[in-house]
Design a protein around this nucleic acid. Structure first.
Lengths: 137, 137
DNA sequence: AAAGAGCGTGCAATGGTATTGCAATTATAG
DNA sequence: CTATAATTGCAATACCATTGCACGCTCTTT
């Protein structure tokens, strides 16, 4: 997938070797990854660099950060095309309490919710914890 | 509210002076509080004690922990009667990005959600970020 | 092709918070 | 009143995110 380089460029990110590798790594993942997980896969690189790489990706809407309740932020590629500085895909996240993996259920849009008067929603986060399909065999 | 003492007893928690005070403090709050917030209100007591107090409350379902995406856990009293070791009230949480307060919208039950085959839900967390009614005047 | 500016990277250090171990104190039960 | 158990306070540990700084690379400009 030489694709990564193009995607970085399109998002206004200079496609360094490191960034391309990280992006490709993210593409290979079926579940969201922690910074530590990325670090373990790139032992030659520094944690800080990877940290900033992910942050850059996030700023440019290539990646979204997921809070799965473990206290450790996870990252996953955004499926949709970046929409001008807005993380637009509000989907469900599932955290498996058994294998500890966090998955994007991209198909499952978050239902619109009605709030009390005066409350203005800007972002919605929905997290389901339980047993994932893999652990449930 | 001498009520606190009874509630602790009913939950199987020994009602020490500290615990009663913390419980009363929680009752007075209109939004969820962080450990640090509790600590600031009880300067005479140790952070660890308060930490364990909240944890005890949580274990006994007097209090539920809220993850509002700030990375700092918040706590709020459970409204419902404790149901045998199960935190049963799945309600909405709202985090105001302006005043930084996190509120339980107890009235707003979380809609049931359909998951892909093989996924078994055990707990659901729904968090809305935006501007709260107080900041929106 | 060489000089310079700006960005990316690595290292070291800082800070904030949860969490645990242990000893002293306090409350409960016999 | 004594013994036992639970609670509390202090100190220490551990884990991350985050930042400052200096070096190196790349890209542009002349």
């Amino acid at each position: 997938m030489k694709n990564s380089e193009k995607q970085l460029r399109d998002s206004g990110i200079r496609p360094t070797a490191m960034r391309i590798l990280v992006h490709q790594f993210m593409q290979d993942q079926s579940s969201a990854v922690s910074l530590t997980a990325v670090e373990d896969n790139f032992e030659r690189s520094d944690r800080t660099t990877l940290y900033r790489t992910l942050k850059t990706f996030e700023d440019k809407c290539l990646v979204h950060q997921i809070d799965d309740g473990t206290g450790i932020p996870k990252y996953a590629l955004c499926k949709h095309d970046a929409v001008e500085g807005k993380h637009g895909d509000l989907h469900l996240h599932f955290h498996c309490t058994q294998c500890n993996q966090t998955t994007c259920l991209t198909e499952h849009r978050i239902p619109t919710i009605s709030l009390p008067d005066g409350f203005v929603p800007e972002d919605i986060n929905m997290l389901v914890k339980g047993i994932c399909d893999n652990c449930n065999l």
